[in-house]
């Protein structure tokens, strides 16, 4: 059996990021979600942060003594869900 430390709880399932990785980042001074997103890929998987960003925001609040409503959330950009390249550019073999 793989023994996990207490901080090795998965925060972001899409990108397999643990609570320890997140806490280390915050302790290193990455206290904005946008920075953490870029550094860890947190929230960049298929769910686009719908699940993990709240948990990460709460962790920032806890470690930096902020309120949830003061956390600046990362931007939301299209596309909302995954999309095939062929959908975007069209299928050239069938359409001219």
């Amino acid at each position: 059996m793989v023994i996990l430390m207490n901080e090795d709880k998965i925060v972001c399932r899409c990108e397999d990021i643990t609570l320890k990785e997140l806490r280390d980042m915050i302790a290193d001074g990455y206290t904005r979600l946008d920075e953490i997103k870029r550094a860890l890929r947190l929230g960049m998987g298929p769910c686009q942060g719908d699940i993990c960003l709240e948990i990460a925001a709460r962790e920032i609040c806890r470690m930096t003594d902020k309120k949830m409503e003061d956390i600046k959330m990362p931007s939301k950009r299209p596309p909302v869900a995954g999309i095939k390249m062929s959908e975007l550019v069209g299928d050239n073999q069938n359409e001219k």
Partner: peptide
């Protein structure tokens, strides 16, 4: 919403 606990995956 998801919850944080050990082995939650």
């Amino acid at each position: 919403k998801m919850m944080l606990f050990l082995n939650n995956d």
